[in-house]
């Protein structure tokens, strides 16, 4: 770079080479700069961080057990003893929500990871191969986009749950099943994005230069193309987390997700919905948690989109 070649006569040594009034920064710092301009996204990122830290470390601080039954405290509203009230068995809702949040967020992130792996794989193969392979993979992607996802999710979980549960236990079995199935229905956007990125990037000069230098196909993809298409992939992955959290909550809300003794946020809502008239707090708190999480993830995704796509920045 500028420092390695002898400076011209006018440039004095010691002064960092800077263009205009601001210092040169790498693409990641530049993205962070643009992300900071999206105020709602920054606020959301903070809220999301608090939520994640809260469910990760909250149970260490709020040590009330999630299944301590106390019939003298049934359906109590919020109080100092139970900040979010209690349910119909007198169990503390704050503890249950913190515990459920771990599962809901874990499902969201794990399903996102599954979707990302499948999507990048399909998109990269389609983008590099082109021709018939590309056409076939894109037909498959379009097919998956037009599948009715919720009915299929219900069908698959209904058919496979019992045998998987008998192999790896109720909690882990349902977790794996839900993560794989939700991820398996959310990879299409990522695949399309990756394919589009690959199509435009593989014609660029720097990729051609790498090819001319004898880089293998794998090296071209891993070192040159994939890192340059990370921006849109990260955005799509963020949105996928929100979609996965909603999908998991929907399943649990329908009573078909995790077993009843695991209080995920959707499950809490499912249990609460028949007591809406005398214990609204029971439904409101888990619902608000889902809403806050999803909303902040969506805003962070929007901020990231601005950050990674300079054309979208508001002037």
């Amino acid at each position: 770079m500028a420092g390695s070649t002898p400076a011209s006569a006018t440039a004095s040594a010691g002064v960092p080479a800077s263009g205009g009034d601001r210092p040169r920064v790498g693409p990641w710092l530049e993205a962070w700069r643009r992300f900071r301009k999206h105020r709602l996204a920054v606020v959301s990122a903070v809220i999301l961080a608090i939520l994640v830290l809260g469910v990760a470390f909250g149970p260490l601080i709020w040590t009330v057990p999630i299944d301590e039954i106390d019939f003298s405290k049934r359906l109590d509203g919020p109080s100092w003893e139970h900040p979010m009230g209690t349910d119909d068995l007198g169990q503390d809702l704050l503890a249950r929500i913190l515990y459920g949040g771990r599962i809901s967020l874990a499902v969201g992130f794990a399903a996102m990871f599954v979707a990302l792996v499948v999507g990048v794989l399909v998109g990269a193969v389609a983008g590099m191969a082109g021709g018939k392979t590309d056409a076939a993979l894109m037909w498959l992607t379009d097919l998956f986009l037009s599948l009715p996802q919720l009915p299929l999710l219900l069908l698959i979980i209904y058919l496979f749950r019992d045998s998987l549960v008998s192999v790896v236990g109720p909690e882990m079995g349902v977790f794996i099943l839900i993560v794989v199935v939700i991820g398996g229905f959310n990879w299409m956007q990522v695949a399309r994005l990756v394919r589009a990125q690959f199509f435009s990037l593989r014609e660029k000069e720097f990729v051609e230069a790498a090819r001319a230098l004898g880089a293998s196909k794998t090296r071209m993809v891993l070192v040159h193309i994939l890192p340059n298409s990370l921006g849109p992939i990260i955005v799509a992955a963020t949105i996928d987390i929100a979609a996965a959290i909603i999908a998991e909550s929907t399943l649990s809300f329908l009573g078909l997700g995790f077993p009843p003794d695991i209080p995920t946020w959707g499950r809490l809502l499912f249990d609460a919905k028949d007591n809406l008239d005398f214990a609204p707090h029971w439904a409101l708190f888990p619902g608000l948690m889902i809403f806050l999480t999803v909303l902040s993830i969506n805003f962070v995704g929007d901020g990231l989109r601005d950050a990674f796509d300079p054309r979208r920045v508001k002037s």
Binding site: T250, A272, N298
Partner: peptide, 22 residues
Amino acid sequence: AFVGFSLPTFFTGLLLILLFSI
């Protein structure tokens, strides 16, 4: 719009029941 599509349908449904029915 962000609030609208971040509110899952099952939660809006319960909220509406709480407000308009109960």
